[in-house]
Every structure is written in C-alpha cells, then in structure tokens.
Design a protein around this nucleic acid. Structure first.
Length: 667
DNA sequence: CTAGGGTTAG
C-alpha cells in the first residue's frame, strides 16, 4: 500500500490541505479507519465526513478497500447523499472490481438503475474484470428499467466470465427474464449448470405465476426437491394475484408453519379480490395464533374495515397502534381517517386528522372526500381552502372530493367555479372523472340541458361513468326520452354492467312503461347478465353480518322477520305507505310491498334493533344506492324507535335522526 | 481478500 505522496492525491485536494506527516492521524491504521466506517459512519453523516477527511490526510484513500467502503457509506440511501458518493467514486484512481461493485450496487439502492448500467459499461471499458458480485444488481437494474437488450447482453457476459453457476446471479437472472415475460429463458437458467437452490426455485415459481402460467408453477412446486416457507408463500401470493383465492386459501390451510408474509399474502389477496369480510376473518385468526401484525398489514386491514364498515375492528387496530407506540405515519394515519370517515364517524376522523403530524396530500384528500360523502360541502370546501393556506398543492383527487361535495349538496355555482379554477388557477387539466362529478352535480339539480352541454364541450369522448351520471339524473327527474337515448348508448358501451340495465328499467318503470321494462329484462337474459344482488352489512360487537334481499341464512332469521313485521305495523300507524314505484316489475301492489319489505337494508336494521342496546346508533353499509322506500322507511324508524341510523350507500352517507335524513332527501 | 436481505407481502 502506498504512503502519502502528493502525486497520488485525489485531484481536488491542493497540497496545502495536507498537513505534514507528523500528525497523529497518519499513524491510524487501515483497520482503524475501516472500523470507523463500518460502525459510526453508518448512522452519522458527521462522522462520515470526518472519516473522509482522515482518509485523505493519511493517504488511506488510495487503498481501494477503504475507498470502496467510503463510497458505500455515502451511498447509504438514508443520508440522501448519493451525488456525493459518485463524486468520491470519481476521485478513486483506477478503481478495482470491489469499488466498481460498490458503486453499481449504490446506484440501485438510490433508485438510479440506468446509472448502474452505464457505470457497468465504463467498468468494462476500463478493463476491470467483473466477478460474481457484479451481476445481481445489474440484472435487477434491467428488470426495473425493462431493458431487454441490455439484459440479454449482460447475461452473455455472465456466461463469458463463467459465472452462470452462482445462485445469486441465477435468481436475479430468473427474476429478470420472468419480468420480461420470458419464462422459457428463465427456466433455462434454472436448469442450467451449477447449483440451483431453494431460492432459485422459488424465484422461478414466482416468475411463472407472475406470467400467469399457473400450471407450470404448480408442477415446479410439486417436484421441487426441497421447499421452504418462501416456496409456499410464493404460491399463495401468486394464486391470489391470479385471482385464484380459493386455491391460495387451500395451500395456506395446508401449511404447517406460517410467517407474517403468509398471513399478509392471503389477507391481501382477499382484499384485492374485494372479499373484505373474509380478510377480516383471517386477520382475527392471525391474532389467535399470536402473530404480531406490523404496519403494512394493519394499513391494509384498515382498508378492509373501512369497506365493510367494521368500526369496532378498526378501532381495535387504532388502539393497538397506540398501545404499541407505532409511529403514526401518513399511510397509517390516512387509513384511519378513511376508516372513520367511511364508518360514519367524522368526529373520530377529524380527531385523527388534526393530531397527525406527517400529513400528505392524500391525507387531506381522505378527509375532504369523507366530508363530501357525508354531504358536508361547506366543511369540505373549507378544508380545501385551509389546505392551500398551508401551502399544500391540491392534486386531481382533491378536486374529485371537492366537486363531489358540491354534487351531494347541490352547490351548482360553487362546483362550476371550482371546475373552472382547476385549469385557470391550479394548472390541472380536468379529467373525465371531474367532468363526471359536474355532470352529476348539474343533473341532480335538474339542469339536464346544462349537463348535456357540458358533456359535448368536454375535450374527450364521454365514458360510461359520465353517461351513467346523466342517466341517473334522468331517473331522478323522470326524463324518459333522454334517459332512453343515453341508456341505449350505455348498454352498448358496457354490455356487462348490470347496473345500467337496472337504471334503464327503473326509468321505464317509473313512467309505467312495463313493456319496455320487460324488454330490458329479456335483453339481460339473452346476454346472460345477472343483476347485482343488493346486500347490507352491519357490524355488531365486532362481527360483520351480511344480509341479502329476503335473506334466510342468518341463524336468527325467525326473530328478524318477526321484528320486521312489528316494525311495519308501527310504521303503518305512523302513516307509512310503501313506495311501490320502486319495484321494477309489473306485479300486484301487495306483492310489491312484500318485495320492498325484505330489502336487505330493512333486514339489517331489524337485526340492529334486535341486537343492540336502545339508544345506540345503528350503522349499515349498502353495496348499492338506497332506494326511495328504504329511505323513507328508515327516516320513520329513526323517529319511532328513537335511534340514530347511519347508512352508507355506494356513493354517500345518510344520517337518519328524529325522522330526518342528513341528505335532506337530496341524493 | 474485502461485499450480497439472492425468493415470497405491502
């Protein structure tokens, strides 16, 4: 190793920076400096700077081992100083393979995959011979940047250097090929010379599943000479991603030992597939097995809770977070705000929101969206202004929330002004979704003509959602002709969406055009479209109960139906009359009334009245929009039984209290 | 020579 000489110095140092050799620093050994770099310098940038100076003063910078370690420390993503790491690397004269490897890996860890590839080219040009440490990060870089040509070339280099036996390289290569959709090349690597171990097999299993080749994955999984927990987990998450949740569950059940990844794979699979109730059941099972959930699982479970209205479960998680003093970061906090807002507890949502320190735009969006769902337009707009006072830039989603708020309370002028300001003030081009909100706003307010005009002034062709909003307005205001016109377009645009058929036949039914109702029904049958069954969920004591129309699967069905009859006796005394125009088919009036009586929402309310203490609020989550009849019946129930009833439908909330609803019958 | 969290979740 060379001692300090001025000729060997990094070129940015002037000779006068270098003190004479008499300092004690020069006596520091290589070992001491390395020790310093590998301990304190990993956490303290100040120490690192000091160490850097020391290496320069003592001449140890010329030692590749020291220089490489120095680059590695500066490349620590936690310091956010990768630019300087590259600078330090530049000062290294004739870097050896060790230093090259470190800097290439550093690029990857600092989200600069293309830089990794270009540095590799420099390395090759500099005639530094790569070793087995060089390639895994390069394959990864190609995977991230989807650089197929580069990937193939790098693979060729691996072969040329005789490194294709290495397991680390193999698994990175397999992963790369699979990400390109080239499972055959991936498999060739797996079966090639050298040791393929469990991790390589697991990577291949994962690759097959990511490419949708379930059969190949199954076969490999079956015939692998050895398996570890990762093999099972790869199959489970892969099945879940392919939408094969039952298969995933089957494997999950067969496992004898499960880790956190197994649990979160299956829970997430359920959530992604929309099986929120099942996700929560598995989460509870996980608790019983004493697995300590960490933040990621908790955030996704909170999303499931929010979707089914499992307030108690969500609250439990909130307590768990506090009790374990987990950091309330933006993701977790936003999930809680969303949970409370979606469960009808704006007060709690607000409390969490206020206390949060790390708010991000999407946190504000969740709160604004929550207020919008509850029809609290003024508050939503107020928060929108506050957000700007705090110098936060609203994004597209923010405007969806604000415009929705306007739509839900009929604030036409405000909504139009906001749409206008998007482009003129915030420089955000309104997208289809924003126009959809405003079409909805105008349509609900009965301004059908204006809504149509807005659609034709849009810079893009209206999609099904926009037309759906217009058609919804036609239903509310009884515009049969326009509704029919839009409906026909919509049925061709989205022939598989049962909701569109329901809406059209609803428009006809309202106008008494039963022949046309029948036609729509026949069309659905011909096309094999099934109506989405309405269902209502209610959370009682932490357990979510789900009811369908005229459901008879609940263990307490007898009591529930008895209760329902009693409820209607009392409602009739209060002057209730069923809104039979809600029923789509031309059947006798009495039959219509029975159909209405067993709507899932009413079953859930009856169950709620039966199984909760008098005076407590009842919370219901509907998968569809509330119907007119359920709306007026629920208003009356809230008065007669003196209960607050909070119903969430597909797009908004209804707070029923003392015979009134928070939506002021505008929905 | 020194260095790899090489697979599976979010």
């Amino acid at each position: 190793m060379s001692t300090t000489t001025t000729t060997n110095l990094p070129h940015h140092l002037k000779p006068k920076d270098i003190s004479t050799e008499s300092t004690s620093a020069s006596k520091l050994s290589q070992k001491t400096i390395l020790n310093l770099l590998n301990t304190k310098c990993n956490t303290s940038l100040q120490c690192l700077k000091l160490a850097y100076c020391l290496t320069l003063r003592t001449g140890h910078f010329q030692d590749h081992y020291v220089a490489g370690t120095l680059v590695k420390c500066y490349a620590n993503p936690h310091f956010n100083n990768f630019g300087f790491a590259l600078k330090v690397f530049d000062y290294v004269l004739n870097p050896n393979v060790f230093v090259w490897n470190i800097v290439i890996r550093g690029c990857l860890e600092n989200n600069e995959p293309s830089k990794a590839i270009s540095l590799y080219h420099l390395m090759v040009a500099a005639n530094s011979r790569p070793n087995k440490f060089t390639y895994p990060p390069l394959f990864k870089a190609c995977t991230i940047t989807h650089a197929i040509e580069e990937g193939l070339q790098i693979h060729a280099h691996v072969v040329k250097h005789g490194l294709s036996r290495d397991g680390h390289i193999k698994s990175a290569g397999i992963q790369m090929y699979a990400s390109f959709g080239r499972v055959r090349e991936a498999r060739r690597m797996l079966d090639g010379e050298g040791d393929s171990d469990i991790i390589c097999w697991n990577t291949m299993v994962d690759g097959y599943l990511k490419c949708g080749d379930v059969e190949a994955a199954k076969e490999l999984f079956e015939c692998m000479p050895d398996k570890n927990i990762g093999s099972w987990n790869a199959m489970i998450s892969g099945f879940a991603k392919c939408g094969m949740i039952e298969e995933a569950r089957k494997l999950f059940n067969e496992m004898d030992k499960r880790d956190e990844i197994s649990w979160s794979a299956i829970i997430d699979g359920y959530i992604k597939g929309g099986y929120y109730k099942e996700a929560l059941e598995v989460f509870n099972e996980m608790q019983r097995e004493d697995i300590r959930p960490r933040k990621f699982i908790l955030s996704s479970v909170l999303a499931a809770c929010a979707n089914v209205g499992a307030l108690d479960q969500g609250r439990w998680i909130h307590t768990y977070v506090k009790r374990n003093s987990m950091r309330m970061d933006a993701v977790l906090g936003t999930a809680l705000v969303d949970l409370y807002a979606k469960c009808g507890r704006l007060d709690m949502a607000w409390e969490v929101f206020e206390k949060m320190i790390e708010k991000e735009v999407y946190t504000w969006n969740a709160m604004i969206g929550g207020l919008a769902m509850h029809g609290r337009a003024e508050d939503a707009i107020g928060l929108f202004s506050k957000m700007q006072r705090e110098k936060l830039k609203p994004n597209e989603i923010t405007f969806v929330g604000v415009l929705n708020a306007c739509a839900h309370s009929g604030m036409v002028d405000e909504g139009l002004a906001i749409l206008d300001s998007m482009k003129n003030v915030y420089g955000i081009e309104p997208e289809m979704e924003h126009y959809g909100c405003v079409v909805d706003l105008l349509g609900r307010a009965g301004l059908l003509k204006e809504a149509e005009e807005l659609i034709s002034s849009m810079p893009m062709e209206p999609n099904a959602a926009v037309l759906g909003a217009l058609m919804g307005a036609c239903r509310i205001h009884g515009h049969v002709e326009l509704g029919e016109r839009v409906g026909k377009v919509l049925l061709e645009l989205e022939p598989k969406n049962s909701g569109r058929y329901a809406l059209l036949s609803n428009i006809y039914a309202k106008a008494g055009r039963w022949d046309d109702v029948e036609k729509v029904r026949r069309l659905m049958k011909e096309r094999g479209i099934k109506t989405t069954a309405g269902s209502s969920m209610i959370d009682v004591g932490g357990i979510v109960h789900r009811f369908k129309m005229a459901d008879s699967s609940h263990p307490q069905k007898k009591e529930i139906y008895l209760m329902l009859d009693r409820i209607f006796e009392r409602l009739h005394m209060e002057g209730y009359s069923p809104k039979t125009s809600q029923v789509l088919f031309d059947i006798k009036e009495e039959e219509k009334e029975t159909t209405l009586r067993y709507h899932s929402e009413k079953l859930a309310i009856a169950f709620g009245l039966l199984s909760t203490e008098p005076g407590t609020a009842i919370r219901i989550v509907n998968n569809l929009r509330v119907c007119d009849d359920c709306h007026s019946a629920t208003k009356l129930i809230s008065e007669v039984y003196n209960r607050e009833i909070i119903v969430r439908d597909r797009v908004r909330y209804h707070h029923f209290k003392n015979g009134k609803c928070s939506c002021k019958d505008y929905w």
